[in-house]
């Protein structure tokens, strides 16, 4: 039995399925991943359907996000990062759409699940290690040795750098998961207050306006959080990729 505030995060197996001994059931999470996919596809395809020199509103939106991602990649990685623009773009727009779609009533927030965010973070972590070794070979370990470190401090510094590097997938995944989960729980809690006060009747019912106003404000905040967290996730991915590509500190 789960608390009512956490009910929204529950996974329901809509079409149970098993392949090669793995559970690949089509769940409500899968459904909203597909909805996100279709949303992104529609946004990109319809936005660029009549690609004109003087852009329309949708085309402007697509170009703006593209320019934003390219700017972020250029700023954090440099010219060498241009190959990763599609990946960062896909990452940013998927998380952005999933976050915002999750805020719709009755929707499921794909990014409020630690397995999803951790899968992203782990993939990015492995990608960084792979790119680092592919580009720099064993010199990649220099990432853990900042230049001009006194020899006495070397063991400590290397340990700290190693821990900060290894904790990246955890912090990256928990940040998004915790932000989305906390926001959705808050909305649910205040919505519960509205219902409770309404059922109490009389003067209490009139007081129900307070949690309602709170929820309206929270919803605005959650919209901001949805965009900011997508941005932070993409930005940190750029920063981590930069470490692997340019071996910088």
């Amino acid at each position: 039995m789960v608390r009512p505030q956490l009910e929204q995060f529950e996974i329901h197996r809509m079409v149970p399925a098993t392949t090669l001994g793995y559970d690949v059931s089509f769940t409500n999470a899968s459904l909203f991943m597909l909805i996100t996919l279709v949303g992104v596809w529609a946004f990109l395809t319809l936005g660029m359907r009549r690609a004109t020199i003087v852009p329309g509103r949708w085309q402007s939106a697509v170009e703006m996000i593209h320019e934003f991602v390219v700017g972020m990649v250029d700023e954090n990685i440099g010219r060498a990062g241009r190959n990763y623009v599609p990946f960062i773009f896909a990452l940013f727009i998927f998380i952005l759409f999933a976050n915002i779609l999750g805020l719709l009533p009755f929707a499921f927030a794909v990014t409020s699940h630690i397995w999803v965010t951790f899968a992203f973070a782990a993939f990015i972590f492995l990608l960084c290690i792979g790119i680092g070794f592919a580009r720099h070979g064993l010199h990649f370990f220099e990432l853990f040795v900042p230049p001009q470190t006194p020899v006495v401090l070397l063991p400590l510094i290397v340990l700290i750098e190693l821990i900060s590097f290894l904790s990246r997938p955890l912090t990256l995944s928990v940040r998004l998961f915790a932000n989305m989960t906390a926001g959705h729980i808050l909305l649910q809690v205040f919505a519960g207050f509205i219902v409770s006060l309404g059922l109490a009747g009389g003067l209490f019912a009139a007081l129900g306006i307070l949690p309602l106003a709170m929820n309206v404000a929270l919803y605005a905040l959650e919209l901001l959080v949805a965009v900011v967290q997508a941005y932070v996730f993409a930005l940190l991915t750029c920063v981590y990729l930069n470490d692997s590509i340019n071996l910088s500190h």
Binding site: I11, D23, V24, T27, S30, M33, H113, W115, V116, A119
Partner: peptide
Amino acid sequence: VAVPQIVW
């Protein structure tokens, strides 16, 4: 719920 989510 990990495996179905990650697979999808």
